[in-house]
Write a protein that binds this DNA or RNA. Sequence first.
RNA 1: GCCGACAUAGCUCAGUUGGCCAGAGCGGCUGUUUUGUAAACAGCGGGUCGUGGGUUCGAAUCCCUCUGUCGGCUCCA
Length: 614
Amino acid sequence: MAQKQDDLYAMRHSLAHITADAVQRLWPEAKFGVGPVVEHGFYYDIDLGDEKVSEDDFKRIEKEMRKIIGADSAFEQSDKPVDEAITWAREAKQPYKEELLNDLKRAGTTSAKDIDAAELGLPSDGSKVDTVGFYTNDSFTDLCRGPHVVSTGKTGAFKLMRVAGAYWRGKEGNPQMQRLHGIAFATKEELDAHLHMLEEAKRRDHRKLGQEMDLFVFSDLVGPGLPLWTPRGTTIRTELDKFVQEMRTEYGYQAVTIPHITKKDLYEKSGHWNKFKDELFRMTTRDGHEFAMKPMNCPHHTQIYDSRPRSYRELPIRYRETTMVYRDEQTGELGGLTRVRSITQDDAHVFCRYSQVKEESLKIWDIIERFYGAQNMELSVRLSMRDPENPDGYLGSSEAWESTQAQLAELINEKIGDDYERGIGEAAFYGPKIDFKAKDAIGREHQVATIQLDFNQPEGFDLNCINENGEKERIVMIHCAVAGSLERFMSILIEHTAGKFPVWLAPEQIRLITVNQTEELIAFADTVAAQAGELGLRVVVDNSNESVGKKIRESEKAKVPYTIVIGEKEVETGETTPRVRGDLTVQEPSTLKIDNFLKTVHNEAKTRSSHTTI
RNA sequence: GCCGACAUAGCUCAGUUGGCCAGAGCGGCUGUUUUGUAAACAGCGGGUCGUGGGUUCGAAUCCCUCUGUCGGCUCCA
């Protein structure tokens, strides 16, 4: 298995070289940046000066690549002293390579942390070297550590996917190069499977389904990154949040409500003003006082906690609030619901003693598990810790970090054993956190819920309780979001379900279709709808002047879980054979009394089941 | 914010090298039909071709500006 991974890596890396080779054959003046392996494939950064590669050029680049592959020329490794390498780069008119090599010469090792050591032809262990590696195939030579496949013919199946701008060495301000991105797999079958997955992802795209299913809209007048939620979309959001809040109420969380703006003083004290003032929506009152829209809720919540002295007997104090925060994200970063400027957080803050962290975190974990369980999403866990090599990037003492990290590690271990990822340097600047990733129906993983420990804000806001000895004791805050951002979660949910929401979330749970539009049938359908309404079910009666077939088709297209045809038969017998949406049904359709059907659906919704019990 | 592509009816899209009143399907509305599990039939509306400017006898089509969308980069409390 590991061997297979290595082979794939070599194939992709070799394809990056072949891409550059092909580009150079077509544009002899091309300047090259770096060309590493990435998930599913590879890329190469190129600079054609005034010319630009476009997707229309992919055909001829790929054709050129196939020629190189067809020649099956060997990849030959060689080493050069650094100075010789620099001369090579200068003579080859490769200023970007020359820059990398000069940096290397200056530092003696891979000082350039932004560039993979492999790109410099260096050993991966960071050891000091005075020669760099090269690989040559046919007439093309590139700086590289390898490994490569034996010869250009052994590179599997590939496809160029897109070209996009990318800053040289990833730094805003540096010149922009063109990043030519390809995917590559060992076999044509695997490549096709991946392309199929991408097609499927496109079919499920939440922006497309959101419009088709009338869940949310954007308005040019309101502005980018500010989604407007329709009644149907709001129903889903409300149901999701209701679930989270029910569970939190069970665990002793109390709802609080805060204004959406604040004086800047709050964020000066919390430290956010300094760090994030450019991303705040700010405003000035007529008296010249500065205010800001809230970009997070914790500082406001601390002020409720700190409104009077707290006894240790009151702790933990748990606040919950689902509310919008506002961040002035750069326009280029906005996209669909995944990155927006008005973000609804299902936020909660626990104010507790250090000794209570573990128990409280386990309770939160329990809520998270139940929530994602109901979505049929598998969770994986990461402990995000500080980088001990770089203690300056974090607030608080090393001892506090060590002890809280150990506490979190212990509780993860207790909960799931050793099966978790450790993210060194992934912690927030104020404390370590447990991050949860959810896997969707087509195998993609999304960062979702978090449990974050915070011993910085309690310090900044001087948050205490009076302990058993009558002394002030510093408390700790736990931040937690279950769905995270409702906008982002909705995008994941839409793509996970492909719009086929489980009954409890479906904006429309049952559609009643009348066979004809006689008064008798309409009256009967209305009675059934009223009955369902009393059970809290969301029902729509379709008594439009269309054929039954047409109305069925529309109900299917709207992805309504249950469709019932109302005709004379139903009026006479009081029975129905419900039409069950494809993904829900596991058995033959059955006939049952209409009130039993309604009770069953009601029960499914109440228990948040994702399977039909009809 | 940066690089690139794109923007035609509510939706999906056609509109030849600039040239008569800008088209189709679906949806909508009206009428006929009274329908039994994925599309009945007919008719009628509907677009200052994203915005503002320019070139031209003439612009959806060419150039510039702005706005927005998409693919990336950078950023993400």
